[in-house]
């Protein structure tokens, strides 16, 4: 534990205000329980998500850069984004503004037109919620605070495809011991194991969840998710831990759809890692928003003495 990031700017992003509300709630509750301070960005905007990026990548860079500029104006050098999509886009904006004159020119022009400060490359760093807990508290710090061990809970940790890709926008990863790996990420495994969980080896930890196909071809998304769910079960998992609202919602929705459309029922439960860590620290299931999940884990959590 380095003690870094005890007070950071918080960029929840659009998904955490809607479908990913339980992630927002559990992230905030986890922070409180750990004595960490999150200060939400004032008047933040969409990171540009996938839609704007598809229309105009530089406009997406501007939208993300505006959020970084707000963090800088509020006096922060670090902004924490729990959503993989937001995290990816803010990191990409950092990279593009440091390496592409065209992006800098567009961001400067649009920032002036909108009447706010232009984000200068290198001014603010984006971290994920996993980095936040790992660096501010660490495994030892977590172990010391666990009141309700996750012992006996078999978890497959699912990182999704945007947490580590493309590699070049994450210069802090792949730096050897202590750093995150882009080929085999482990921060979620480390943290949940510190809380007592039995993390299973899950070969599809960074595989595509089909989120991009949800509207264009739902059957493909359902088949991809069904394969993730059945593989997690084949690995012995009772729970899939997530760290992205898009992946999480996709897993939950398509678990239901797989049963309805393909008659394939799976039993594995889907919970945010922040919910699991919160419960390990003694917070109730309700406090970390488990009742907001589509995947009903109440029986399993009761059986394990959690929540």
């Amino acid at each position: 534990m380095s003690g870094k990031h005890r007070k950071v700017a918080y960029y929840p992003g659009c998904a955490l205000e809607e479908t990913g509300h339980a992630y927002n709630r559990s992230t905030k509750e986890l922070g409180k329980a750990l004595g960490l301070e999150l200060v939400e960005l004032e008047n933040w905007n969409c990171c540009g998500a996938m839609e704007v990026k598809n229309l105009d990548p530089k406009l997406q860079t501007y939208l993300s850069a505006r959020n970084l500029a707000i963090a800088g104006k509020m006096g922060f050098d670090t902004v924490m984004a729990p959503c993989n999509g937001c995290y990816h886009n803010l990191k990409k904006a950092e990279y593009d503004l440091g390496h592409d004159a065209g992006s800098r020119e567009v961001v400067e022009r649009l920032s002036q037109k909108a009447g706010h400060e232009t984000y200068e490359a290198g001014g603010v760093s984006t971290i994920h919620a996993l980095d936040w807990i790992k660096e501010a508290i660490g495994e030892d710090g977590l172990k010391n605070r666990v009141e309700n061990s996750l012992k006996g809970l078999k978890i497959a940790n699912y990182y999704g495809c945007m947490y580590t890709r493309p590699r070049h926008i994450f210069p802090e990863k792949d730096k050897g011991p202590g750093s995150e790996s882009t080929s085999k990420p482990h921060f979620m495994d480390d943290l949940l194991a510190a809380a007592g969980a039995d993390c299973v080896e899950f070969p599809l930890r960074t595989a595509c969840c089909g989120g991009a196909h949800t509207l264009s071809d739902s059957d493909i998304s359902t088949k991809l998710v069904l394969n993730l769910l059945t593989t997690a079960e084949a690995c012995g998992a009772e729970v899939i831990a997530t760290e992205c609202p898009t992946c999480h919602t996709g897993l939950e929705m398509h678990q239901v759809r797989a049963e309805k459309v393909f008659g394939r029922k799976t039993r594995v439960k889907i919970l945010y890692f922040t919910q699991l860590l919160g419960m390990a620290l003694g917070l109730s299931a309700r406090r970390v928003g488990v009742q907001e999940n589509l995947s009903d884990a109440s029986d399993l959590l009761r059986q394990k003495g959690l929540g």
Binding site: C161, C208, A212, H213, S216, S221, N227
Partner: peptide, 24 residues
């Protein structure tokens, strides 16, 4: 998973990229 992923991409190719590092 590889087969499903590629199948999905082949079907969605005409719709453009929706994933990271998109090529609009």
């Amino acid at each position: 998973h590889l087969a499903l992923f590629i199948d999905g991409r082949l079907q969605a190719a005409a719709l453009g990229e929706f994933c990271c590092s998109s090529r609009p």
